[in-house]
Amino acid sequence: MSPTSPPSTAVPLSRTAIFLFAWVLSVLPLTVDGGLQAALGDGSRLALSWLPWIAFVGMPGAATEGRDWLLALGLCVPVTAVALWVDQDAGLLAGRLHATNLAGVVALCTIGESRYLAARSDVPSYAPCWFVLVLGLPGLATALAWGAGGRLMEGTWAELLASLSPLSAMWRDVRQVDSSASAEFLGAALFCPSTLSCVVLVVVMAVLSRRGRAA
């Protein structure tokens, strides 16, 4: 199928179930449960709502004909819109929130498209790439920080590696709610290491997919 032609088949049930699970997880930070809200503290609900989508949208698995990440986008936008409203009304910096939102949309679309391109042409290197980028780097950074009692991360290569992962970048946005760092600006969200690594992933998958189909 060419990238511009409309998908003709439904999103498989297994993928739909994954997206439903992500939807439930993204709604949780918005619930009125007092204990949960107290535990989350001042953390950005918007960034928390984006986390499950970034984690699940590119999960390797069943081959699909269409761009199933569009279904994930349709499911997540109403939830993240409410999370944005909640954070904005709580007085969090609007510039930072819009940057978080933009970073979330870019991550979802690029990782989802990478998975689609890889599944279409059976690119075997997608699964390890996705694992390293989305789960491996934040896992490694967390393990190193845990091993060093939380002192290793700042200004080290482990922090640089973690910043390449969209999941780590979104987790950082959960905590930096009142910072006046450069992420207030949308440009910073577009050119941050995690967004660039997502773009690199989609470009690499497009190239490998084209080669695979040509072969």
Partner: peptide, 22 residues
């Protein structure tokens, strides 16, 4: 959106519209 599972592009458009309206 789930009802439009067979048309993901339409599902995305509907989701974006619902997000703006909320």
């Amino acid at each position: 959106v789930l009802g439009l599972r067979r048309r993901p592009a339409m599902a995305a458009l509907l989701g974006v519209a619902a997000g703006l309206a909320v």
